[in-house]
Computed example of a mutant assay.
Amino acid sequence: MNNYAGLAGSVVINPKDHKLIQYDASLALIGVGRSAYVFKINNTNHALKVFFPSYQHLAKVEADVYKIIQHIDYFPSLYESGSHYLVIDFIDGYTLFECLSRGIPVSENHIKDVDMAINLAREEGLNPSDIHLRNIIIHNGKIKMIDVARFKQGETDHQWNDLKTAFYRLYTKSFFPKKIPAFMMNWIAVLYKRFYRKSPIHIK
């Protein structure tokens, strides 16, 4: 029997600065975001997402979203959730951010797959939001979307539409570089949030 709760409990995060203090040896740190650390559970195809102390309420929110979209192949499966953690599929691949920074081609089919995933989630009564380059992964040629907590927010988020516009107006053009430095994309993201995401996002 998998002791996911025990593994999640082994993860110690400083509540003041969110620095990772310790975690079980059977976990491999694979990422950190604005609200959580993500680990691959060794010898499995599962990932453990442990939320920072001040963001633990998002564990239930995100788990509830995953339960709604379990049947949609564009999203990982949820295996367990607790007060401050989730266990989902480990998705092996590159995010769109990594694709652009490494010069890995992003095709129109990938963009259409994201649109399909969004539309299918909307059919379930959700409001897909906070969709950006780091939470879209190309896995075996197909896309998988992660970090779905904000699919329950009330406000309309135009971020994906803006990214899609940039894809067709710039990326698809022959003159546009297909490899973009990470620092440049980070700088653009900061400016975008400053000028287009002035109001806080509220989750229903």
Rank of each mutant, 00 (worst) to 15 (best):
M1N: 14
N3M: 15
N3K: 15
N3C: 15
Y4G: 08
G6R: 10
A8N: 10
G9C: 10
G9K: 13
S10F: 08
V11N: 07
V12Y: 05
I13W: 02
K16Y: 15
K16C: 14
L20P: 04
L20T: 05
D24C: 02
D24S: 14
D24F: 03
S26P: 01
A28P: 00
A28H: 10
L29A: 08
G31Q: 02
G31C: 09
G33P: 08
R34E: 14
R34T: 11
S35W: 11
N43V: 09
N43T: 11
H46S: 07
H46T: 10
A47P: 08
L48S: 00
V50W: 06
F51H: 09
P53F: 06
S54T: 12
S54D: 12
Q56V: 13
K60D: 14
E62K: 13
A63C: 15
D64P: 01
D64M: 06
Y66A: 02
K67N: 15
I69H: 00
Q70C: 04
H71Y: 07
I72G: 02
I72Q: 06
D73F: 06
Y74H: 02
Y74R: 04
F75Q: 02
S77P: 08
L78G: 07
Y79E: 03
S81G: 00
G82N: 08
S83W: 07
S83R: 14
H84V: 03
H84I: 02
L86R: 01
V87H: 01
F90Y: 13
I91Y: 00
I91Q: 08
G93P: 03
Y94F: 14
C99L: 09
L100C: 06
S101C: 13
I104H: 05
V106E: 00
E108T: 09
N109I: 09
H110G: 00
K112E: 04
A117N: 00
N119M: 06
N119L: 02
A121M: 04
G125C: 06
G125D: 07
N127M: 08
P128W: 00
D130H: 07
H132C: 03
L133F: 14
I138C: 08
H139W: 06
G141F: 05
K144E: 10
K144D: 07
D147T: 05
V148R: 01
V148H: 05
V148N: 07
A149G: 07
F151V: 04
K152I: 12
Q153P: 04
G154T: 15
E155T: 12
D157T: 04
Q159C: 12
W160H: 09
A166G: 13
R169Q: 14
R169I: 04
R169E: 14
Y171L: 04
T172W: 11
S174I: 15
F175K: 09
P177V: 03
K178T: 04
K179L: 07
P181M: 09
A182T: 12
M184E: 11
W187T: 13
W187E: 14
I188N: 01
A189Y: 09
V190P: 01
L191Q: 10
L191A: 09
Y192H: 07
Y192W: 06
K193I: 10
R194C: 02
F195R: 11
Y196N: 13
R197T: 02
P200H: 09
I201T: 10
K204V: 11
